[in-house]
Design a protein around this nucleic acid. Sequence first.
RNA 1: GUGGUUGUAGCUCAGUUGGUUAGAGCGCCUGAUUGUGGUUCAGGAGGUCGUCGGUUCGAGACCGAUCUUCCACCCCA
Length: 456
Amino acid sequence: MAQKPSIPKGTRDFSPEEVSKRDYIVQTIKKQFQHFGFQPIETPSFENSDTLMGKYGEEGDRLIFKILNSGDFLRKVKDDLYTEKDSLKLTPKISEKALRYDLTVPFARYVVQHQNEIDFPFKRYQIQPVWRADRPQKGRFREFFQCDADVVGSDSLWQEVEFVQLYDAVFTQLKLDGVSIKMNNRKILSGFAEVIGESDKLIDFTVALDKLDKIGEEGVTKEMQEKGISAEAIKTISPIFSLSGSFLDKIASLKEILASSETGKKGIEELEFVQKAIEKMPLQTANLDLDVTLARGLNYYTGAIFEVAAPANVKMGSIGGGGRYDDLTGIFGLKNISGIGISFGLDRIYLVLEELNLFPTSAKNNTKVIFINFGQKEALYAMQAVQKLRENGINAELYPDAAKMKKQMNYANKRDIPFVVLAGSKEIENKEFTLKNMKTGEQDNLNFSVLVQTLK
RNA sequence: GUGGUUGUAGCUCAGUUGGUUAGAGCGCCUGAUUGUGGUUCAGGAGGUCGUCGGUUCGAGACCGAUCUUCCACCCCA
């Protein structure tokens, strides 16, 4: 055998069964997006580099896949730049396009570019693959799908409410009960930093705080100190490490902690609004929770922050996330457009549904019936029936070769096809079909109309 | 990007301190059974031991590089 072919690191092939199951999730999400009034858009797989570069921070730039220019691109590079061998400086000269890194920045570009055709508020969803030159881990790939829904052009808090309901609707539909929708607000995080007089260290503060469930209070304290936040300041804020009780209890505690911060109080107000609305319109299967440690890197969020955790009995990171960003389109020159969006983690949802065995059997849209091929004449008789079955919406096929019966039966068995039709000279003579149920092994002689009825 | 880890048949894995012709289970193919699959029985095919290089009389095993897998960081979905 020749050298076995392979696929690049962090990419995957999907088998027919995997595609069916992924499609089931995507269709469910899509349906709910549409119920909530979102419209689909699609953007190119690659963008101009300057659209993407610098939007995700230094770390992000490193993880963007760059596309090499066409033609004899090295000839155009100046000699001194070439001999310098500085990749960072050379890259923009030899690569002017890059693969999409997420869906949010291309969306912002889309909104700015088409601002005169768009009716605001603009509710769009987008389900497309994105690429990251990351080092893969479990549930982390270099090519993966994002399922995003965003609204731009409205700063109404009803959007926050709606996104909580959207999460609930999707996971309810997927029969994934007991997910936890965790909310926080960037203004509360700003409030914390303000209260301890470390507003300029907000990022370091939140990055450390976010690790609370992982490294504990001690670890967080240590990391904050390493970043130059005084022990005294940390002590002032330490009550937030052990907030407990209901959403309302936590709100009450926060009101005390953030009493001196206008920004903080605004954040509390926003969370309270959402909580009260959801109280009047209870969620079907999800729980809404407040988690002040929620921060994850997402530096462009300015208001609400969402994260969805899988049910407690499954060990899995977040299966969705999002938040409000007040000025995303600002980077492309369109100011004062507020946006809010959420995302579903397709791959992780897949793993969770698999673990809990929640995929319906209908997720496989398999062939329902296969006709045994007995030879030229019989195949024509079978093919005519196959055609009519297909017209009746039944997935049907004819085994293409007049192979041994054993082989054909075995094929049906392997492919998990529930019914087999035998139509040889005997059946043709009587204008009927022998239908065999592969599970029970029973078989009957039927005319065509009964055959259709049975298979429908 | 940092540190570690993994790779032997289609799949899951054995393979002793370096020593003839690299094994098992499952799967696959053929037959018993020329219009009846799953069970059983008999037989068979399938390997450049991830790749390239090195050490050695001799490498699946030791060394180096590289690719890949998974994990912890970084970061993030």
